[in-house]
Nucleic acid binder design. Structure first.
Lengths: 208, 208
DNA sequence: TGTACATCAGTGAACGCGCGTTCACTGATGTAC
DNA sequence: TGTACATCAGTGAACGCGCGTTCACTGATGTAC
């Protein structure tokens, strides 16, 4: 399969990197867009799997460490595969509309962080005074979908989780795309700080 | 000048949108990359100016409202000019290296938020116990550059500001690029929430 | 006021290139008897 | 064990297209006398 090491988004370039003539790819993908879709799905599954492995290496009893592990894995993957990262988290490819079934693999990474948060809230004895806040958040999120993915998590925490997700990817993009040039010197430490702030926002308050 | 309404990043497409033949552009730009640079600088100045106007419409005595105004202006600009937004905040154009002098216009938008934060801290009587925390943050940021841009602001707040900057752009990108499809329903209210969290993180604690 | 000439914005044809896609093909591998 | 044929992965030439770039050109506008 045309999985590993495909960087450019041109069919001919992909073929070139595979050491194969361009028309050979038509045996596997009827069209360029299908190739693109395959690459995107592949990339999503790749980050997703990385994050999952990292998370599973830390016991659920330490949600903050888990959160850090997963986030770092995502960043590491991004830096190792900048092209696939740009493919899925950069600007959409002009003229290409991702088919419906890419949504599931796309959600996989986010779900890793979501699960860590959900598990942590389930374990915590933090009182969830959901009802009175639900009204303030009513209609902001796609509650039905999120019920399946982050069950039992307060609506406000779900919102913060979505925010934090954009924050983490935003930081990685800024680092990779050069927007932090001139302001951040040590990206490793900066990222740790960012993730720690994120964790504080979305994890239940520590029980001392 | 080739300013308004240029969406695609191909020289011929820009020419087409200007109702002009492609070779005509060579009177103004020696090369495609120079055109691109001009478009990028233009886009940066455009968002920057929008944010500045919005910020100046709110008195400095209300930093949180100012912050919201500026952030909303950025989002509004992004939604009105999705192509220029993608050009500057999406994946970098392959094979194109932005020249040094694009950094200044690029900083302009960020500087609007930075100024709001800086002004707020200057006005606030919040104790800045900078020295003891400076050690923890030492070497993380490009302190020399940030001294010029956010003078007198604690190093930790500067770090949070940079994080929050990526968070805001991250959220806008997620909205525009479709990554929030299926999780966020009301983007306006979601964005307000995000910006409010951001403001809370970077503005000095309210004096009651 | 009128002619002569320079300036300058834009035209249009042409170039070589990489792209996505097609199509007839080659040659190795697997199966049938 | 050996021949005959089907399957299948990949080749290579060709297509039409949009791209960035060049070059000689046209025709309107501005300046000089």
């Amino acid at each position: 399969m045309a999985a590993k090491g495909a960087s450019g988004l041109s069919l001919r370039e992909v073929a070139r990197e595979m050491g194969v003539v361009s028309s050979a790819l038509y045996r596997y993908f009827p069209t360029r867009d299908d190739l693109l879709t395959a690459l995107i799905v592949d990339a999503y599954n790749d980050v997703g799997a990385s994050a999952e492995r990292a998370a599973h290496r830390v016991p659920p009893s330490e949600p903050r460490r888990r959160f850090h592990a997963a986030a770092s894995a995502i960043r590491k993957w991004a830096k190792t595969n900048p092209n696939e990262y740009a493919l899925v988290y950069g600007s959409p490819v002009p003229g290409y509309e991702a088919p419906q079934f890419t949504i599931e693999p796309a959600a996989r990474v986010a779900l890793v962080l979501g699960s860590i948060i959900t598990d942590a809230w389930r374990e915590s004895r933090a009182e969830v005074s959901e009802e009175n806040e639900a009204s303030a958040m009513k209609g902001v999120l796609e509650t039905r979908n999120l019920d399946a993915v982050m069950p039992g998590v307060p609506e406000s925490v779900r919102a913060l989780s979505l925010m934090v997700w954009a924050q983490i990817i935003g930081c990685i993009s800024f680092e990779l795309f050069g927007h932090y040039k001139g302001s951040v010197r040590n990206f490793n430490r900066f990222f740790v700080m960012v993730v720690d702030e994120a964790a504080t926002l979305v994890l239940p308050p520590e029980r001392v």
